[in-house]
Design a protein around this nucleic acid. Structure first.
Length: 446
RNA sequence: CGGAGCGUGGCGCAGCCUGGUAGCGCACCUGUUUUGGGUACAGGGGGUCGCAGGUUCGAAUCCUGCCGCUCCGACCA
């Protein structure tokens, strides 16, 4: 993409309403624009990031055995009356009536809907287990939306739902999602720690929240420092191997990790030696829980067992705040110049900066680099604006592109361009070919 | 939902107290200049001052009502 033809409304000054860094940077970098309280349009740059996050979530969900579907945003009130949640949910649920005065609602979540679908489509124990998920916009009429997309009223969420015959099966499904979440967040360059959660209004007893550690997090967290250092790395997961999954889950839940909701100082101090006690702040980016037959029973979603009995499903639900992640990643990865995208979610993989726009040699070299990078499958943003070098650096650093290829007449005389890493600032003078090879290798392209 | 505050060009703000028909910086356009980390100068375009009533010869400014938004606390992916 040539920046001169892109839509990137960046701002030099901080918007007054944005209090936390991710909100400020998302507005300044032209990623989002507020439509009304807690509701945002995603501009091209923000939308690219959102799609990349979404793609990783899709990929990891499916690797773990979950099957994608897409349910509507608008649901019928009747379904929610059956589960008893129509009244329980309160003012947070956006209620709508259609022209026939039928009561509808904009879905804040989809347990009822998916249970109805699974109940209708699954009749036999032979059809179990199944995990269905979708990534869809949700609406919760929060009392106090804030922090930009971190706590909007409209937000994009991945929600998965598992269906099993019995509790052992449900645990396997739960563990699949647990490990899948570890992989998902790790791939995005995040350090997410599973913490014991409160079962909350949806209920259930097997439940964890995944929090990434960041100073601006909304929750206080208390954990064994060692847990924050765990990593799956390149470990190969056999998703069908229940005991192997359980072993991973056990390792991540072996020690103390709780949010302020469930924190017990005395237990913390008794279980964890002082030097390993880590008190920090965290942003919740995922939440999983097992809730048994809470929905299948009232909605009459049942299967036949091998013995010919009819029983309700054992279920759990598993959420990831997809739009929130865009903000959360920025909270975890930025500096005073702007965003620092992890390579996996960066809106562009590399920026070409022409230091001397209009100089025939520089223009020619940049055009050539730009074409070749595209040919090698890299997503490149070419800053070809008629701006001074400083303005280009400031823009590219603000929007957080992980790598810069800096091209100017001086370097070209020596036959080199500069390859600059956004995070470390490390600069290498390389021939254009070497620089391209380096980038292709970094991103795993030919 | 309790508390505080704010609505004036795309963004950040001044003007309001003491009514006289809107201004500054950034951004944008034109020209000159400059050219390796947000150049300088000159000129220029863009605003029903959140909305509706009211007071007044006259309202961004005073009064009333409404709407929108933000921040702090109790709640949530």
């Amino acid at each position: 993409m040539r920046l001169s033809r892109y839509f990137l409304p960046v701002q030099k000054e901080n918007p007054a309403e944005a209090e936390i860094v991710s909100h400020r940077l998302m507005l300044r970098a032209g990623m989002i624009r507020q439509a009304s309280a807690g509701i945002y349009s995603w501009l091209p740059l923000g939308y690219k990031v959102l799609r990349k996050i979404e793609a990783i979530v899709h990929d990891e969900q499916q690797k773990a055995g979950a099957i994608p579907v897409l349910m509507p945003t608008i649901q019928s009130a009747d379904l929610w009356r059956q589960s008893g949640r129509y009244d329980d949910y309160g003012a947070e649920m956006l209620r709508i009536t259609d022209r026939g005065d039928r009561e509808m609602l904009y879905g804040p979540t989809n347990e009822e809907q998916i249970t109805e679908i699974a109940g209708a489509g699954i009749r036999s124990y032979r059809d179990l287990p199944r995990i269905l998920y979708h990534i869809q916009w949700k609406f919760r009429d929060e009392v106090r939306p804030r922090f930009g997309v971190m706590r909007g009223r409209e937000f994009l969420m991945k929600d998965a739902y598992s269906f099993d015959l019995d509790k052992d099966g449900a645990r396997h499904s739960y563990n699949r999602m647990f490990v899948s979440y570890l992989r998902t967040f790790e791939r995005m360059g995040l350090k997410a720690v599973p913490m014991r959660a409160d079962s909350g209004p949806i209920g259930g007893d097997m439940t964890h929240e995944f929090l990434i550690l960041a100073e601006t997090g909304e929750s206080a967290v208390f954990l064994d420092r060692d847990l924050a250092d765990l990593s799956l790395g390149e470990r190969v997961i056999d998703w069908e191997d229940g005991p192997a999954l359980q072993e991973v889950v056990d390792r991540y839940t072996a020690s103390y990790a709780r949010t302020d909701e469930t924190h017990e100082e005395a237990v913390f101090e008794a279980e964890i030696p002082e030097e390993r006690r880590l008190t920090a702040r965290g942003i919740e980016v995922g939440h999983i829980f097992y809730f048994g037959t809470k929905y299948s029973r009232p909605l009459n979603a049942t299967v036949n067992t091998p013995d010919g009995e009819v029983v309700p499903f054992e279920s759990g639900s598993y959420g990831i705040g997809v739009s929130r992640l865009a903000g959360a990643i920025i909270e975890a990865s930025h500096d005073d110049r702007g965003i620092i995208w992890p390579e996996a979610v960066a809106p562009f993989e590399v920026a070409v900066i022409n230091l001397r726009q209009g100089d025939a040699e520089a223009d020619g070299a940049c055009d050539d680099l730009y074409a070749k990078l595209i040919a090698r499958g890299l997503d490149v943003l070419y800053d070809d604006r008629d701006e001074r070098a400083g303005a280009k650096f400031a823009t590219i650093d603000l929007i957080g592109i992980p790598w810069k290829l800096v091209v100017g007449p001086r370097g070209l005389k020596e036959g080199v361009v500069e390859l600059v890493n956004r995070r470390t600032g490390e600069t290498e003078n390389l021939s254009p070919d070497d620089a391209m090879n380096r980038l292709a290798a970094t991103y795993g392209r030919a």
